[in-house]
């Protein structure tokens, strides 16, 4: 039996379909709308307000005069206009390898940064690296395993814009010391069998000396 749901909650299938159709009805192409449907659902799965942010974004987007064309080399902290979270997200997603190479991207003025977040999540998965996304005082670490950690409670929040945004590709590194690893490894070897001479010569396929 499935648990942990309320009887009234909307399903992922409904969220994806309705978001996709609402996006198309608001002027996005079908392909872009597919990306939006997937992302809004991803936000909801993270327990963030994907539907609320997207609904508000659609109401305001035409009046915000959002930038929709980008060049990764020119993204900077002195943007004159506000970046559209969807077109910028798609642009970076399509250029995931460039994001990986640049390691760090800083720019300013991003509308509805939570809508931008799932694109970063998917880039993290594509490039196999964790990504740190900072916007203003919000810090989010996106893990390639489809999880994230946030430094504050964003549940039920609509965030209309961010002034300063940083995307940082994090190097994959161990979270433990060599000493701890050795201790654990030593313990794991207790599952091994000590080989006597006969086992050494008979238990494996090749010979002990293979100079032929």
């Amino acid at each position: 039996m499935i648990t942990g749901c309320t009887l009234e909650m909307r399903t992922s299938s409904e969220i994806i379909t309705v978001s996709k159709r609402a996006a198309k009805a608001s002027g996005f192409s079908w392909g872009v709308s597919e990306e939006i449907g997937k992302n809004i659902n991803l936000l909801e799965m993270f327990n963030l307000s994907g539907v609320e942010n997207f609904n508000q974004y659609l109401k305001e987007k035409d009046s915000l005069n959002l930038e929709s064309k980008f060049n990764i080399a020119n993204l900077s902290s002195s943007n004159s206009s506000v970046c559209c979270p969807i077109f910028l997200g798609i642009y970076l997603l399509d250029n995931s390898n460039k994001v990986l190479n640049l390691k760090k991207i800083k720019f300013s003025r991003l509308a509805y940064p939570l809508i931008f977040l799932p694109f970063m999540q998917r880039i993290s998965y594509n490039i196999g690296k964790n990504i740190r996304l900072n916007f203003d005082d919000v810090q989010i670490e996106l893990h390639l395993t489809n999880t994230l950690s946030i430094n504050q409670d964003l549940k039920r929040k609509i965030i209309k814009s961010a002034e300063a945004v940083t995307i940082e590709v994090l190097e994959n590194e161990d979270s433990f010391s060599n000493k701890v690893w050795e201790e654990l490894h030593e313990l794991s070897t207790n599952t091994f069998v000590e080989e006597n001479e006969r086992l050494k010569s008979n238990a494996a396929g090749a010979g002990l000396v293979d100079n032929d």
Partner: peptide, 12 residues
């Protein structure tokens, strides 16, 4: 795609 996103669904 940055100039042809109307065909994104078909590229996929």
């Amino acid at each position: 795609l940055s100039n042809n996103n109307d065909l994104r669904h078909i590229v996929r």
